[in-house]
Amino acid sequence: MLHRENKVKQYHTSSAADLLKEVMDYYDITQADLAKRIGVSQKNISDILNRKRYLTAVLAIRIEKVMGISSKLLLSLDSNYKLQLAKKDSNTANKEASSPLFLQRYSWVTA
């Protein structure tokens, strides 16, 4: 049953950029080298690593072929990260309980 009182624990949310940085550090790969290997500009890689831009499906597949990191994982990390940012920006967690649009159980309903 859905209860407003149930809270979901917040954990650190990583983006694909975090994982890419770790793998680049491990293999001692520069942004320019990675960019060349996957066919994009170094600026594009820099923007991704600094979270100014997020991965596309095509770019995630290219990275998977070069680095061996699952494209599904990369896209999932970015998706979860962007969702977390959106929730934080809009403060939806605080507004839900007071919103008149939130589903409410009517007193006359018996279950």
Rank of each mutant, 00 (worst) to 15 (best):
S71R: 06
I63T: 01
L77N: 09
S99L: 06
L83P: 04
S107D: 08
N91Q: 12
L75S: 04
R62E: 13
V66C: 08
E5P: 00
V58L: 12
Q10G: 04
L77W: 08
Y106W: 02
N6H: 12
L59M: 13
V8G: 00
M24V: 09
Q104G: 09
N6C: 07
R37P: 09
L101F: 14
K21R: 15
Y81E: 05
Y81G: 04
S15L: 03
I45M: 05
S14R: 10
L49P: 03
K88M: 04
L2A: 11
R4V: 07
L19K: 06
K87P: 00
Q31F: 13
A16K: 02
L20G: 04
H3G: 00
Y54E: 02
G68D: 02
R53V: 00
A35V: 09
N94L: 04
N44C: 13
K82P: 04
N94W: 02
I48E: 05
N80A: 11
N6W: 10
S107T: 07
F102M: 01
S76F: 13
A97K: 03
L83E: 11
A57K: 04
T13P: 00
S79V: 04
I38R: 13
K43P: 10
M24N: 03
T56L: 05
S46T: 11
D33P: 05
Y26V: 13
K95T: 06
V109F: 15
A97V: 07
T92V: 10
T13M: 09
V58K: 14
D18V: 14
M67T: 03
L20K: 04
I69Q: 03
Q104W: 06
S90I: 14
L74Q: 00
L49A: 05
V66P: 03
D18A: 14
R105H: 11
L77C: 10
V109P: 07
S46H: 11
Y27T: 14
A57M: 01
N80H: 09
I63M: 02
S98D: 08
A86I: 07
A17G: 08
L20S: 06
Y106T: 03
D89E: 11
E96W: 11
L55V: 14
I63F: 00
Q31I: 12
H3L: 01
A93W: 15
K95S: 09
I38A: 11
T13L: 02
A17W: 07
E96Q: 12
N50M: 06
H3C: 00
S98N: 07
I61T: 11
K43C: 08
F102E: 00
T56K: 06
Q104F: 07
E64P: 06
S76I: 12
R4M: 11
